[in-house]
Amino acid sequence: YMEGDRKTLVRQIHDAYMKNFTMNKAKARLILTGKTSEPPFIIHDMDTFQLAERTLAAHMVKGDRSESESEVQSEPETPAPVCQELQQREAEARLFHCCQSTSVETVTELTEFAKAMPHFQMLDLNDQVTLLKYAVHEALFTLLASCMNKDGLLVARGRGFITREFLKSLRRPFSDMMEPKFQFATRFNSMDLDDSDLALFVAAIICCGDRPGLVDVPVVERLQESVIQALRHHLLANHPDDTFLFPRLLQKLADLRELVTEHAQLIQEIKTLEDTSLHPLLQEIYKDMY
């Protein structure tokens, strides 16, 4: 790759990222730092969660801000004490389904992003499937970090903010789901990457030559090498004062694999312990993963 080609690759990957992901770090940071006109609705307990379910979901379906805002003013129904525990269990299960819906939406965006990456669609179709199968959760947790701060996580396309304490207060195994992601996000966000860096990092996660079962490893490795070199040069240009950023970022790839392995085990545990279903797309991805 010559310098001109490399710059074209960086631009194409950044464009693909900005076009295909509805939320990005720049947007998320504006919301998280209170620089938008409308602050997100804060979900900090079961009542505010149930209120958000009605208002934010209604907003997404109707696309009518004024109508959903008027619903925010309404009082939540008070559950009878005898039903409270059952209602809480149901709410936790619904929260798990909300997480699944967001994951499925992001997997769809990631697939479109991969397809828009130069040379990806020229790969063997089986290899495209393999690369996405193993990459989507690593990429998902990377993108999730952009929506997190130490206190919580943006949800519903930035219209809601769910607190870390509330997620920790859920019963096991749901309470164990997000805390490791917050811990990862704190370390990851300290590197101060912007969307152009993240676009290349997500591309590097996807184009990985050591995923199990790849048919044509050398072709994937060549693509990986071009993305990794583009990432290295871009980081040096974009963060001239941080010369160790590239090796630190590569280290995060190992951290992400560990995070995904733990997450897959937890999903397995939830499937075993709880009477809950898993979206067919996520079932495909988890099946025979590690």
Partner: peptide, 21 residues
């Protein structure tokens, strides 16, 4: 592999949303 990952395969082929598959 494509047989075991029908939805992922379909998303790669034509970009249908998972609910449409």
């Amino acid at each position: 592999l494509q047989e075991k990952h029908k939805i992922l395969h379909k998303l790669l082929q034509n970009g249908n949303t998972p609910d449409e598959v």
